[in-house]
Design a protein around this nucleic acid. Sequence first.
DNA 1: TGATTAATTAACACTATGTTGTTTACAATG
DNA 2: CATTGTAAACAACATAGTGTTAATTAATCA
Lengths: 201, 201
Amino acid sequence: MAKKTDLRVKRTRKLINDAFLKFIEEKGFEAMTIQEIADEALINRATFYLHYDDKYDLLEKMSADVIQELTSVINPPFVQADQEVNIERLKGSVTNVYQCIQKHQMFYQVMLGENGINGFRNNLEEVIREKFDRHIKEVVKDPNQFQIPEDLLLHFISAAFVAVIQWWLNQEEKPTPEEMANQLTKLITQGPIQTAGVKIE
Amino acid sequence: MAKKTDLRVKRTRKLINDAFLKFIEEKGFEAMTIQEIADEALINRATFYLHYDDKYDLLEKMSADVIQELTSVINPPFVQADQEVNIERLKGSVTNVYQCIQKHQMFYQVMLGENGINGFRNNLEEVIREKFDRHIKEVVKDPNQFQIPEDLLLHFISAAFVAVIQWWLNQEEKPTPEEMANQLTKLITQGPIQTAGVKIE
DNA sequence: TGATTAATTAACACTATGTTGTTTACAATG
DNA sequence: CATTGTAAACAACATAGTGTTAATTAATCA
């Protein structure tokens, strides 16, 4: 973060961000106009263009900031050299992730919500996939140990991971980050069927 | 489906649909204009408005048709009265789903692809979730058998399910529907970690 | 306080939208 | 095959949003 010397800039950016989030929540990204953002932020429309190229630019910059912070709290190795998952370490990282999301709850809620930005979800998945991928490539020596294509596995996990986040954000009474880490761990170690308490033929 | 008696209507609709898909693939939904659709479809712009309110209306109508066909091939019960999953039946339904997608491959590829419509993915997940939900409610008598909230489980499964479809559509050399059914079955019965051949502490 | 730089204002050309009224062409019927 | 209903074409319109510019005002920093 470069220091924003001028207070006016800081204030204007914040007003724009707030207005933007408000409208995404209320009417969705596509429906909002720059004039509306400006009105809500109590700035002139031309001022908006002094800060961002267009609303897509604004969206990208806001997302990038938050996602960057999130990735910084995911830290492998979850899998040790002996091919065992380190459950505690895994839970630790998941807990960190949920705490980070909690910190920016409003933002995530809006971006992943009903009227949210669907591209944001893809970004999240991609970022998670990359983290896992890099780690797996370090640890796994024998590609044949996979029962299915590695890439397929990564897509499965990252999508499920983000879906669980999305579910969590929609709950009135949110389980704690630690509880979420436990539930997610059950799901990916036992699989959803056994977690549902259903026997397998 | 009401019968479209008039050939002209049939033709115009098809031309619009084709142009629409072409532009989604090329430049994405938001970037395309109705003028462009009309030019590509070799019809007058005003003609477009005789058939659809706007491009969102067109999108909805196209999606609804295809999703409707997809849901019709998912047929529970996968879980029997004795609380055992019927693996064969499950594989059968999954195979049907992939065959149905294969039939409209171009459409799904575009809609779920790089430049695709992200709301479409949500629709798919929702539809799958509902199917499963209705079935689960019939079979499961004791809500305590779940180790985690049922709703969370449903979100996990449906998101993973659609993610695997998405992965499949992006493969140059696509596994057969039967192979996909096998791989998906492994993932949801054993869980991703064991499927990766990694031991659990 | 004075210098700097952000924000305001009003005007501009441009592009897309959705609608309307009239005319033309065609497809399905008896 | 002629008739009739209706889809499609066409042209013109008002409306709304975009992105840019140049001159002016006002807030902030040092």
